[in-house]
Design a protein around this nucleic acid. Structure first.
Lengths: 208, 208
DNA sequence: AAAAAAATCACCCTTTTGGGGTGATTCCTT
DNA sequence: AAGGAATCACCCCAAAAGGGTGATTTTTTT
């Protein structure tokens, strides 16, 4: 017979925290051994909880979720970390994975899926779930095949939103001339000479 | 006992193709009988594979996915075609359905959902899957709830592509002034006064 | 440590574009 | 007959876009 899976939740929003705790606790084979509202809080006691899986919010007061991961892994080397996030930001998720997270859940994930993901991670189907694999592949293609640098890609995305140079400059806290410079480089790299063509190329080549 | 469901995948990106093949092949009751990187490639041999379901990419070299559907149906009249696409373009999907596709999957569909959809299509729950129904409804709402006229929506889409007034004018074979006029009306209706804001509003309200 | 790439900013230039205002005409649908 | 939709016209001016040619400073790679 399988042992119950022990879970710790670190999440600052009380409603969400209790919601998850209730939801998971009510499921056969799953036990919530502790909940914390911050990593700093959790750090003191979590070692004695020895959970199998930690659900970790990204947006936390004090030590943020991404930074908390390696610390958690140090305290609990056997433990799997599942990221909870509202933002599907690639960078965030990648940083989290790079730091040792085993998966991620967005906060609108249906309850059944959450339970399933916990089991998936615990059973060590490998830390790489299908969703993550796809994300990795996608970003791989984006960051590897793209002729554009990060900044250029970022600016191209804003161009895709119809933003003007000055709007972009404000948004990125850089000078108007810098934006111009990036755009010129983008045009050279994509071999285009207008915003419309750049957007078209970018979409075709999945750069944005 | 149920026979295994035989599947053929036509998709030009190797990573995605192998990903799907692996994923589906690993599932009990599903068998990937062949994979091709283009329709033209597939056409030669697919008849002897007699798959139950074909997963068909839209963006293909040579014969594109939409055009490939009727040809596939001719070769394999009993076969169901599921469209794979990164773009959730309504026109594309509608054309595909009109051409005989039984459903569509976006490439970020979770694996479980893909398997489920294949089964759904195979079991002939009817060509109208939940997703399609939603799409139909949404498109309905689009043309019904939108404050914008057709032409305005069309022009807003081109603005979303980063096109300038004159480019839009050329593309629609109308005068520059007419484009201006439409854009002014769009701005009034959406209560904005810049391209970027119009695009943002439009995306928020799913007008484009 | 040296070289390359990325990110930053500067100033030259001209043409185009964008947005506001205020009209009018035709066509189609209600 | 009324109203929306689509079409076109001309006023204005500030802003933006695109091209050229640089330089400096980080960051990353080798």
């Amino acid at each position: 017979m399988n042992r119950t899976i022990k879970i710790t939740i670190i999440e600052d929003d009380e409603t969400i925290r209790n919601g998850y705790a209730y939801l998971i606790g009510a499921t056969e084979g799953y036990e919530v051994v502790s909940t914390y509202c911050s990593y700093d809080e959790a750090a003191k006691k979590i070692a004695t909880d020895h959970p199998d899986v930690v659900l970790l919010d990204i947006e936390l007061p004090g030590t943020n979720g991404v930074d908390a991961i390696p610390k958690l892994k140090k305290l609990l080397p056997q433990c799997y970390v599942l990221i909870l996030t509202v933002y599907e930001s690639e960078k965030l998720i990648f940083n989290a994975l790079a730091n040792g997270a085993s998966g991620y859940l967005t906060k609108n994930t249906p309850s059944a899926k959450i339970i399933e993901s916990i089991k998936e991670v615990k059973d060590g189907g490998g830390p790489m779930s299908i969703n993550i694999a796809k994300l990795v592949i996608r970003s791989f293609q984006k960051n590897q095949e793209s002729p554009l640098s990060r900044r250029e890609t970022q600016i191209l995305e804003l161009i895709g939103d119809g933003k003007s140079r000055s709007q972009i400059a404000k948004e990125l806290f850089i000078d108007l001339e810098t934006v111009r410079s990036h755009i010129k480089n983008i045009y050279v790299k994509l071999d285009v000479n207008s915003r419309a063509d750049a957007i078209k190329m970018a979409k075709q080549n999945k750069l944005i």
